[in-house]
Design a protein around this nucleic acid. Structure first.
Ligand SMILES: [Mn+2]
Ligand SMILES: [Mn+2]
Ligand SMILES: [Zn+2]
Ligand SMILES: [Zn+2]
Lengths: 142, 142
DNA sequence: CAAGTTGATTAGAATTTTTCTAAACTGCGA
DNA sequence: TCGCAGTTTAGAAAAATTCTAATCAACTTG
């Protein structure tokens, strides 16, 4: 149950290179998860959600490995983590600077077109600290 | 260990009335927690943090009761819940419309003076949904 | 190219955070 | 005062996340 990668006959070159470029070993588990994450358009996933997708695709990884991969990808800038809700955190395959709608009923996230939010004034970062990110979350009731 | 309220000889009238006005029974446990929360200036607490304060003040409540009280207070508009961090959610005694600095190192929250953030443009709420709140969180590295 | 070394990775186990639900309590009407 | 009904509490359970020991694989050496 702990087989590691074997040379895939038709590797998804794009995803493979994405991992290599970031300095993460393209293991069988990471490749499979990266394919699920980056193989189609941008999406917002939870650990549990990605884990379930993996199961459906017969990709055998533990939930802990899903967390590890999500955190590793985030640390390398391939994903962005978003906290909107105490229930669980979301990971966003869109790492461009952008903001979100959060649908309180369904728990879903949706990107907001970058230009439709404009912040006119921002305060100074307090005492010797530096701004690392500004998150705008528009909560909507559906 | 399950004694309920008994008439306190010198009740904190302000806190007592705050609970009565919101329609929550002013039980011994809620009064004690409300006193910790509202008895001083505005603050941002986690369930665990408030639970520890309670222990230090020899207020005997279970952690589950702290969660119940925080959620009840939030439902009645006495508190506001904030998600910034997957580790745990925060509850804010300041229910006015305002935004936050989040110190990534220490995990602390700090209010931003209301006028120093101005949002110039906001998008329409998508398809038949209505905006319930806009949260701006400025993450800073300390 | 085999074996040994070392650092990276995986995933079961443990921990932390939050919620559920049965029991305890309280307010009210008889 | 007593019993009933809705409310509240908190131990137990569940859900979310992290820890760590075992495993794996890249690299070095012979
Ligand atoms: Mn959590
Ligand atoms: Mn949880
Ligand atoms: Zn997004
Ligand atoms: Zn605040």
């Amino acid at each position: 149950m702990n087989l590691q990668q074997k040379k895939t006959s038709a590797p998804d070159t794009t995803v493979l290179e994405k991992l290599r470029a970031s300095g993460l070993r393209p293991t069988r588990q990471r490749l499979a998860l990266a394919k699920l994450l980056f193989g189609r358009g941008h999406c917002h996933v939870t650990a549990e959600g990605l884990f379930n997708e993996a199961k459906q695709t017969h990709v055998n990884v533990s939930l802990a490995t899903v967390y590890n991969a999500l955190h590793d990808f985030t640390a390398k800038g391939l994903l962005r983590e978003i906290s909107v809700d105490s229930s669980s955190s979301y990971f966003d395959t869109n790492t461009d600077d952008h903001h979100h709608f959060f649908f309180e009923g369904t728990g879903e996230l949706q990107d907001i077109p970058p230009d439709s939010v404009r912040i006119a004034a921002l305060p100074e970062a307090p005492g010797g600290s530096a701004i690392s990110r500004v998150d705008v979350i528009i909560r909507v009731r559906d």
